[in-house]
């Protein structure tokens, strides 16, 4: 019961993170910026509107938003049980988490091709390109982390552990991966609809109304899951326990750690320019090399 409450709060909080990043970015650029609650307003607006579906589209297009959201929520369960309760989840481990995310991405890419617009195809092709290059870097991070903590279970590093050189390097590698996966600058740009640069936005271009809201919500949750993984590697916390106020305090600390990651993401986003698509291969190659270094550190035991 406590767990369900946790997960519910987690989902409710997830859009806040995007609002926070956007607010920080705007303030650093000397702009006033939108409210940090803007993602909630957007979701409310989208949920209350009707939608338009392309006449070319098949059932894949209609089903994709549900697959995206349900795969993200399944992944969320996997992570949260490991971090909030620190109990081993029988459902799967770190590797399964990556493949569950891949399921949602697969359907979204198909849906993008379904409407017969070139924007969709463009987005779908680029998204699959980036995500397939993410895979080896991601595996190296998982490999380094599991060598260090003794298994691929997410709960293996869900407890209060000592921060080693290996987990710091792995966290940096994971950070680069997360930038690519959550479509942030320098790999992708969430704020633009320019056909030359967009990746994720091009895929969801044909979506509107409630379906778009489901996809947006899924990407907020996915972002929060990835931030939680990074945070747990470099600012480890134990599982939540104790009475009501202790749990509230634990949760606030949990969120403020995510806030720190959000701050770093915002700083990266305003200080670098977006790369050409093919430079993203080098970017992810760098993440892979960092993953190898993390593995070497884990083998050496530092």
């Amino acid at each position: 019961m406590k767990l369900i409450l946790h997960i519910f709060v987690f989902i409710l909080v997830s859009p806040l993170l995007s609002g926070l990043i956007s607010k920080i970015k705007n303030n650093l650029r000397m702009r006033k910026g939108q409210s940090i609650f803007q993602p909630y307003y957007n979701l409310t607006k989208l949920f209350s509107k009707g939608e338009v579906i392309s006449e070319t589209a098949s059932w894949i297009f209609r089903v994709a938003p549900f697959v995206v959201l349900s795969s993200t929520l399944t992944a969320a369960i996997l992570v949260l049980v490991g971090f909030f309760n620190n109990s081993i989840h029988q459902m799967g481990d770190f590797i399964a988490l990556i493949f569950i995310f891949a399921l949602g991405r697969f359907f979204l890419s198909l849906a993008a091709l379904d409407t017969g617009s070139s924007f969709g195809g463009m987005g779908s092709s680029r998204e699959m390109f980036i995500s397939s290059l993410v895979e080896p870097a991601m595996f190296m991070v998982i490999f380094a982390v599991s060598l260090q903590f003794g298994s691929t279970n997410i709960s293996a590093f869900g407890s209060l552990h000592t921060v080693s050189a290996s987990s710091i390097v792995a966290a940096v590698a994971l950070f680069l991966i997360v930038i690519a996966e959550t479509s942030r600058i320098p790999v992708d740009n969430q704020e633009t609809h320019l056909e030359l640069t967009m990746i994720h936005e091009a895929m969801v271009l044909e979506y509107s109304g409630r379906s778009l809201a489901l996809i947006e919500l899924a990407s907020y949750i996915k972002q929060m899951i990835y931030f939680s993984l990074i945070a747990q590697l470099i600012f480890p916390v134990g599982p939540s326990e104790g009475n009501f106020t202790q749990i509230i305090l634990w949760f606030l600390w949990y969120l403020s750690r995510l806030g720190i990651i959000a701050l770093v993401v915002a700083l990266v986003e305003i200080s670098v320019a977006k790369m050409r698509l093919f430079r993203a291969a080098d970017f992810l190659g760098f993440a892979f090399v960092l993953g190898v270094i993390a593995t070497v550190c884990a083998i050496l035991g530092v």
Binding site: F47, S48, K49, G50, E51, V52, I53, S54, E55, T56, A57, R62, T115, G116, S117, L205, E206, G209, R210
Partner: peptide, 13 residues
């Protein structure tokens, strides 16, 4: 959440 029926229309061109 709402009861609007999806409108089927041409792909944005």
């Amino acid at each position: 959440i709402n009861s609007y029926k999806p409108r089927v229309y041409k792909t944005w061109d």
